[in-house]
């Protein structure tokens, strides 16, 4: 369960988020959509405190991460993130990328972490590249490694921050398929994306955000077929041509 209570975020004079209130029950697959600059990336980055809210509370699994001395690092172990730019560790092999944090952060024995890493690499179709370095892989392959890296932490929540936006068009599908496949499981998923296909196919809920505020919040059917705001209709008309 993730709960954002009155979350605001300022960057200097710019207010990226305006009193956001959002409850995400465990297991939900929620997609956050919005034009660029709307605050959707800031919102998802507040969930694991990569951005500190200027005010308001972020509560993950009952822990208020905005509290003084909150165990943020501990909570992050079960809230994995997949980044737009992959952010794989370039000095580590694919296998090491996936097994490093479980071994160092969680203290999982190396053999066990390696075994589960191989399992997840197989699941995302990268098993054959385990000994390569990230730079030797295509963007789509790198992002799949990043997903395996996230999975090997056995997270309760996975945050996807525009996971396909930096990919060449022909590689978007291979990554989307992996994410859609994950959506059949029990992990809570928060996905910031421009991929309407994913929102339609795999999401339970779509949130539309504009200028730091939530304008729409409902099922995908509701969002695509009966949006409430003109701003949403305009956005959809542009994106669904």
């Amino acid at each position: 369960m993730i709960e954002l209570v009155d979350v605001s975020k300022h960057f200097g004079s710019l207010q990226a988020l305006k009193n956001i209130n959002l409850k995400i029950p465990s297991g939900q697959k929620i997609v956050i959509i919005g034009p660029s600059g709307s605050g959707k990336s800031t919102l998802i980055r507040c969930i694991n405190m990569l951005e500190k809210p200027s005010s308001g509370q972020v509560i993950v699994d009952g822990v208020d991460l905005t509290a003084h001395r909150a165990p943020v690092a501990k909570v992050r172990q079960s809230v994995a993130m997949v980044f737009q730019q992959f952010n794989l560790y370039p000095h580590k092999t694919v296998l090491e990328n996936v097994s490093l944090a479980p071994i160092v952060v969680k203290g999982v024995p190396k053999a066990e972490a390696t075994e589960s890493a191989m399992k997840y690499l197989e699941r995302v179709g990268i098993k054959g590249h385990a000994d390569k370095y990230p730079a030797q892989l295509s963007g789509g392959q790198q992002q799949r490694v990043a997903i395996a890296r996230a999975l090997n932490m056995h997270p309760k929540v996975m945050l996807f921050d525009e996971p396909t936006s930096a990919l060449d068009p022909e590689m978007i599908q291979e990554v989307l398929e992996v994410i859609i496949d994950l959506a059949t499981g029990g992990i809570t998923m928060v996905v910031v994306t421009h991929e309407m296909g994913f929102a339609k196919e795999a999401a339970d809920r779509v949130v539309f955000i504009d200028e730091g505020q939530i304008l729409e919040d409902g099922t995908p059917e509701h969002f695509f077929e009966a949006p409430q705001h003109d701003r949403t209709k305009l956005f959809l008309s542009k994106i669904l041509r």
Binding site: A73, V79, A80, N87, Y89, H91, A101, V104, V105, M153
Partner: peptide, 27 residues
């Protein structure tokens, strides 16, 4: 992005430096 990746996986700041940033910076 490297710092964020490390922190997002639950590494401490010092742990991120030690395992992720400094090995790359050393080169």
């Amino acid at each position: 992005g490297q710092l964020e990746a490390g922190l997002s996986q639950g590494f401490s700041y010092v742990g991120t430096m030690r395992h992720i940033i400094i090995p790359q910076a050393m080169r």
